[in-house]
């Protein structure tokens, strides 16, 4: 575990709530980034991020120092967001089925330094298409794709974050990618069927 994180947690537990600020500053963007990819709405993502940190603070005494704080805060974020998505399911499906796919844009800007504007545009469109496809996955599959591809966690870390066996991680990743691939093939973002 990062010693700075450890120190901050210890200070919080001894009554110094301001020590929590360093943890917030270190991990807020990471948490927000994961949450916003799952909920596809910046305002909701900000509210959930705030909730995640407040819950983490309240539950700080349950934190196990043998594991990285990053994994722990991710676990809270993913669990809270999955819970939110399940409760908001009708609204979430509504976006899926009826909205114009081009009318929504995830609040993420592609920082592409290449000089070619056409290439930038293409890359930006691809990124946007992928984000939409990921958003349309069911919450469990969405979480695992985000942790693997956007957080670049390995299987062990994903298993630890989600509290599931590695076999389940592999299985869900496979299913999620199959679904993504099917959507992208259907929309001709990937080459056609066999």
């Amino acid at each position: 575990m990062n010693t700075d994180d450890f120190d901050a947690v210890q200070q919080c537990l001894t009554g110094n709530s301001q020590a929590f600020q360093s943890l917030v500053e270190r991990y807020q963007r990471l948490v927000y980034d994961t949450v916003v990819r799952m909920v596809y709405d910046p305002e909701t993502a900000r509210d959930l991020t705030q909730e995640v940190f407040v819950n983490a603070y309240v539950k700080l005494h349950t934190f196990d120092a043998r594991y990285p704080f990053r994994i722990w805060i991710h676990r809270i974020a993913v669990n809270r967001t999955i819970d939110f998505l399940r409760r908001k399911k009708p609204e979430y499906l509504l976006v899926d089925q009826h909205s114009d796919p081009d009318s929504r844009s995830l609040p993420m800007q592609i920082a592409d330094s290449r000089p070619n504007p056409e290439a930038n545009l293409e890359s930006s469109e691809t990124a946007e298409r992928i984000k939409r496809a990921v958003y349309m996955l069911e919450p469990n599959l969405k979480a695992i794709i985000i942790l693997r591809h956007f957080r670049e966690m390995n299987y062990d870390q994903i298993a630890e974050t989600l509290g599931i066996p590695i076999g389940t991680v592999k299985n869900r990743l496979f299913r999620a990618r199959e679904k993504l691939q099917a959507v992208l093939v259907k929309d001709e973002w990937l080459e056609g069927a066999f």
Binding site: Q28, Y32, V54, L106, M108, T126, K131, H149
Partner: peptide, 16 residues
């Protein structure tokens, strides 16, 4: 291509 991090304003004040 979709990996670039999302940008948001600093939430630390609200959280704290």
């Amino acid at each position: 291509t979709a990996r670039d991090p999302a940008r948001t304003s600093d939430l630390s004040f609200k959280i704290m």
